[in-house]
Amino acid sequence: MLEIRWHGRGGQGVWSASILLATAAIRTGKYAQSFPEFGPERTGAPVQAYNRIDDKPIVIHSNIYEPDIVIVIDPTLLENAKAILSGIEPGGHLLVNTPESPDQIRKKLEVPEGVRVWTVDATTIALEEMGRAITNTPMLGALLKAVPVVPLDAIKTVVRERWPGEVGEKNIRAIERALKEVKSG
């Protein structure tokens, strides 16, 4: 079973991203969960969302304490390295939206050995492709490069359902660019 924790700020769409991912996984015959950090929605405050994805039915209903993948969609959250790195173990992946390199992030956050760091400038991609700094969908593209949890086409399908027309196509362009541009270290 794969467990994912998304970090963002209220209103940036971490829950939406986790819903898109889980829906795409379910459509491709997998079992999945998506849930928000349980609490009232607070615009601008640090919030988290979660995914579980597996090939068999998922019966666990507790919070996620040891994620395999941590995704940070807002670089201003990196100040709280403790929250970002909580529970992540060697073999895990840390994906960050930042113009910095994976090495810079590894040093800055003191990422443990064995955790693979991935970075992508999702904010710039979002601004260029969508005209708004919406980084949740591009980070889905980065995720698919780091760990191909679901096929890109499955993500495209659910994005087009969620935002039919031009908005969906812009999101897809941002997703595809992030998938190409994400770097690991």
Partner: peptide
């Protein structure tokens, strides 16, 4: 059904 644990958790 359990609030949030089930009500707000998307699943198959």
């Amino acid at each position: 059904l359990d609030g949030f644990f089930i009500s707000h958790t998307l699943q198959n």
